[in-house]
Design a protein around this nucleic acid. Structure first.
Lengths: 203, 203
DNA sequence: ACAATCATACCGACCGGTCGGTATGATAGA
DNA sequence: TCTATCATACCGACCGGTCGGTATGATTGT
């Protein structure tokens, strides 16, 4: 959509600045002026690229979800064994530390507004449902290979997602209270065991 | 602290109104004026009882956490068997529906501000640590009875809390996508199985 | 020239908190 | 019991400041 090279640069500068400012202050407290300041750009430039404050918030959400989905699919491709893939994903949670803390706080903001604002809700829910479907498919595949007796793959997938989100929230608030990567890992391991998976290649 | 009966009434009216308005609009969007309107009280009365907007938010948080802890301890007392108690608690998650949705959105708000505001953080974290300790003690007791081989009770407790929080968040956003009470139940059941608990009395 | 891109100045609405003043009820002296 | 006194509880107008968004003009690239 940008016609000039300079335009694209300021567009991404605004997005990156918004990510910083939103993460640091939260959506409501973050002012458009602060975002422009962080991007080294004027307010006019902002409203040239985005029709509203909410619009840049949604654009940010979309970019975020796309990256996350890419990472998950990458992990899945790297591990033929499903249990191993899930355990590998669980260790990624460890990223919620120091620097990452503010970054993940923005994620909480997304959920918060999704719970109230219909536009944010729609933008959040449809990719989320794709995640859920993704997990369910993987688990259904595992079921065909003998695991998960008498368990609905969708339910199992939701349990996995719940565990991940819960660890993220806790790790965000209390990054030093525990090794949250370890908590996620042990949690997934326990779930896999409870579902009758054979112990994966790596302990 | 209230010296007159009328005073106590308006105090609680303000707290209840704040719970409604905060849950419906979020902390930042909710104005003190709106809270006063909902309570049928003037702004002067508000600032007579609470020194600031944040103060009533924290008072609300405290009331909330106390009730929650009471409920959990009550469930524990009602079930001598720890596994049964945990399963009973899991079914309580089902309350996140229709009416409860907005109510729980306020809970998300608490976490969100706890991630940024030191005052909210302190008010959230210390009761949370009590929850964590509570779960760890229960699980340590179970460990003495033979369950949870080679698992740290604290880690296990954090896994349980993570599952609960994750189900709550999902149930808040997508109340109709699944029976979240069932998801929580199956999740806890799977964890218990993975930890080597013997199947509880009720399936 | 002319359209896309950005800067500056500004508007109107709103909000948290303050403040001078009033109503309400408790207490005590007669 | 009646009334003077006073602390508590409450009212509502108001202020300083902020913020999202707009209007308009300058600048840049083609």
């Amino acid at each position: 959509m940008p016609k000039q090279a300079r335009s694209e640069a300021t567009y991404h500068a605004l997005l990156d600045a918004a990510e910083q400012v939103f993460a640091a202050q939260g959506y409501a407290a973050a002012s458009v002026a602060a975002i422009c300041r962080a991007a080294g750009v004027s307010k006019g430039a902002f409203y040239h690229h985005f029709p509203s404050k909410q619009a840049i918030f949604l654009a940010l959400l979309q970019r975020w979800l796309q990256r996350l989905e890419g990472q998950l699919r990458h992990q899945r491709r790297a591990h033929p064994d499903i249990a191993a893939a899930l355990l590998a994903m669980s260790t990624q949670v460890q990223q919620v530390r120091r620097e990452g803390r503010r970054h993940w706080a923005l994620w909480l903001d997304f959920w918060r507004y999704a719970a109230r604002d219909p536009a944010v809700w729609a933008a959040t829910v449809s990719p989320y449902r794709r995640f859920e479907q993704m997990f369910a498919e993987w688990l259904a595949e595992a079921q065909r290979q003998g695991a998960l007796p008498d368990e609905d793959p969708h339910t199992a997938g939701r349990v996995l997602l719940a565990l991940a989100m819960g660890v993220l929230v806790q790790g965000m608030l209390l990054p030093d209270d525990a090794d949250w990567g370890q908590v996620a890992y042990r949690g997934v391991l326990t779930l896999l065991r409870g579902w009758g998976f054979t112990p994966p290649t790596t302990a």
